[in-house]
């Protein structure tokens, strides 16, 4: 881990420098038009860093916006980014939990019941090649028609998206024991439940965590996109949408960074669980 730190910091520094350069270039024209006639090039360049609605806000502007929207408002106010992040994260989380339970249950069914495997597996695999997210607006509208709004449609879409990677990952994992490991169980004339508990389930753990990470990101994307079609008032998707309506670029960037932080948090939590299991297994999954 340590020998990654220096290169990562260097690359990050390069990104920030490029970002400032990009802000300077992209905002220059607007700044020149806004400046008075005897402004020097230097004045204009300085102005590119502090515009109200820049084409590309400079990193410190985004940081300021992020700081203000996170810390300068009470967390239950619609002006607080924490509030919006919580709304989205909750919907994504509820959906993820449902996907987790159902995905694993279905995987267990598929591994043990041939009819389920034969009927469903092809469709589950195909569904990963299909832009499932496209159904989001329709689900939101239809559920709205029957009076379901707010959390439920978002959680449903988030869950639907994250369901597939979890179930395919678990099917792969539950099938991962090699023939010799399975024969061993047979020589003990172990019951199906014993084979599951002592072999299939522990072997599947190595496959579970990577698919959980994918699923968590998808749940977040699903919740964000589900906030777009109704012009929702709350959530990171709503922030992106209003930001794009009113040209509030800083708001968009702040919401984006918040969404990324949420994704990082989710991945971090899953990695934490993975590390805990890793420790219990002496360092290998």
């Amino acid at each position: 881990m340590r020998h990654h730190a220096v290169p990562v910091l260097v690359v990050l520094a390069v990104v920030v420098v490029l970002w400032y350069a990009g802000a300077l270039l992209l905002n220059f024209d607007v700044a020149r038009n806004l400046a008075d006639e005897n402004a020097t090039t230097w004045d204009i360049a300085a102005a590119t860093m502090s515009q109200g609605r820049p084409v590309l806000p400079a990193p410190h502007q985004v940081a300021t916006e992020l700081f203000e929207s996170v810390f300068m408002h009470p967390v239950n106010s619609p002006k607080s980014l924490v509030y919006h992040a919580a709304v989205t994260a909750f919907a994504a989380g509820v959906g993820f939990v449902f996907a987790f339970v159902l995905g694993i249950a279905l995987a267990i069914g598929i591994v043990h019941v041939r009819t389920l495997e034969r009927s469903l597996m092809l469709w589950i695999i195909t569904s990963q090649t299909v832009p499932v997210l496209a159904i989001a607006p329709m689900v939101v509208v239809v559920l709205g028609n029957v009076g379901l709004t707010g959390l439920l449609p978002k959680a449903l879409i988030a869950g639907y998206l994250s369901f597939f990677p979890i179930s395919t990952g678990m099917v792969k994992g539950l099938r991962s024991p090699d023939p010799m490991q399975r024969d061993l169980m047979r020589t003990y004339s172990a019951s199906g439940a014993q084979v599951f508990r002592k072999l299939r389930w522990p072997a599947a753990m190595a496959f579970l965590f990577p698919s959980l990470k994918v699923a968590a990101t998808l749940a977040l994307v699903g919740a964000i996109v589900a906030e777009l079609p109704t012009g929702a008032q709350a959530g990171l998707g709503a922030r992106l949408l209003t930001g794009s309506y009113y040209g509030q670029t800083q708001q968009i960037w702040a919401a984006l960074i918040m969404a990324s932080l949420l994704a990082l948090l989710a991945v971090g939590v899953i990695d934490g669980a993975r590390l805990a299991m890793l420790r219990a297994r002496g360092g290998r999954l």
């Binding site: 090699d178 010799m180 490991q181 024969d183 002592k198 072999l199 522990p202 072997a203 290998r284």
Partner: peptide, 8 residues
Amino acid sequence: QAPALYPW
């Protein structure tokens, strides 16, 4: 032929 031990 192989130990077939469970790594976990």
